[in-house]
Design a protein around this nucleic acid. Structure first.
Lengths: 204, 204
DNA sequence: GTCTATAATTCGATAGAC
DNA sequence: GTCTATCGAATTATAGAC
């Protein structure tokens, strides 16, 4: 914004390339040369624009996290939708997000638990907790005997897990892309139904 | 077994230390010097016993994988138990496994999708696929309209996800160990029930 | 802003004494 | 089998010309 040349697009180009590489290889697995090659920009420009690999990583990490929040929070805070509608909408949006960036869930889950203090700014997280959402309130009032945290974890987990687990999912060997996509589409339809069944079952 | 000194325990010591460090930091994030420090053994001994870092990693990886299979396959292949009993038993065993090594799920999910050819031996995997289990057959015959792969993925996912996702689980901030443990114990009881509810629900 | 060249570290692996 | 010392490659980061 305050530069003279085509620097803005260079900076952007590096950041986008970094995002792709970090997503695929994680922090420790990514070399700055990978980012340089992926972006087509000179190696030195990475440090020129972003000071350090770690700093660049934190920026990318934060963007991904924000992207998730901005996709999810409005859905969970909609005062005009039912629990089931919120589930349908969240699963739909989140599956699309995962399909667009299949490496994202693995990346997040892997790096956020890491030793790195990414997303370190306590300011950023604000009170945008999923705990304080309308969804949470609806669950507590309509299903007072169910712990909402389980519902949330199960929903996110069932949505995300196929992208983490073609591995642990030993049964899906040789699953080509088409089969995987069909699998996901089945889940897009079923997950909200499954969650509702879990909620409505006899409370024992 | 064929060595003269206390070499067996040294080799074991290194392998166990490597397991701990790899579990926590992953392959790329682990330095051989970390393993040396963690084990208290000399740096050079790592290469003496295991030739290379990568080789040591593959050995550890295989052990963890075997541990999972040996814990799960017998349960899924028991001809004397119902679907629900298998679910209860698997969840119970697998949660214990995860509680003993909380870093394990993240590690597996992270590294198995990686570029590494760990567990490369096709021989090892044999036909011990979860696809060919009695559990799979029971599902197909008792719930012919349900895709067994979803059931399997949901079961494993719901069991494992809390260990992956204190992170993505934004709602569980500040969850201390005791609270987390209680959360897991709730799930140990509920997951089989939830899965059965999903199975028995009216087929939409 | 961009490039080349290189400094400064870090890391995996090994040589060689004991 | 174990240790010290170190090589050589890889990698992050920077200095300095353009």
């Amino acid at each position: 914004m305050e530069n003279s040349k085509s620097s803005v697009s260079t900076e952007q180009s590096i950041k986008e390339a970094a995002k792709r590489v970090f997503l695929k290889k994680g922090f420790a697995g990514t070399k700055t040369r990978d980012i340089s090659e992926e972006s087509g920009e000179n190696l030195a420009l990475i440090n020129y624009y972003f000071r350090s690999k770690k700093n660049l990583f934190q920026i990318v990490m934060k963007e991904i996290f924000i992207e998730f929040l901005e996709s999810s929070i409005p859905v969970f805070n909609d005062t005009n939708t039912s629990i089931q509608q919120k589930l349908e909408s969240f699963v739909d949006r989140h599956l699309n997000l995962c399909l667009k960036q299949p490496d994202m869930p693995l990346f997040v889950v892997n790096e956020i638990n890491g030793n790195l203090d990414c997303i370190a700014d306590p300011e950023e997280q604000k009170n945008e907790r999923v705990e304080n959402t309308v969804f949470h309130q609806q669950l507590t009032s309509e299903y007072p005997e169910t712990n909402p945290e389980h519902v949330l974890l199960n929903t996110i987990g069932m949505t995300v897990y196929p992208f983490l687990g073609r591995a642990m999912m030993c049964g899906m060997q040789g699953a080509d892309d088409a089969k995987f996509l069909a699998f996901i589409e089945e889940r897009r339809k079923m997950i909200p139904i499954w969650i509702m069944r879990m909620l409505n079952g006899t409370s024992d």
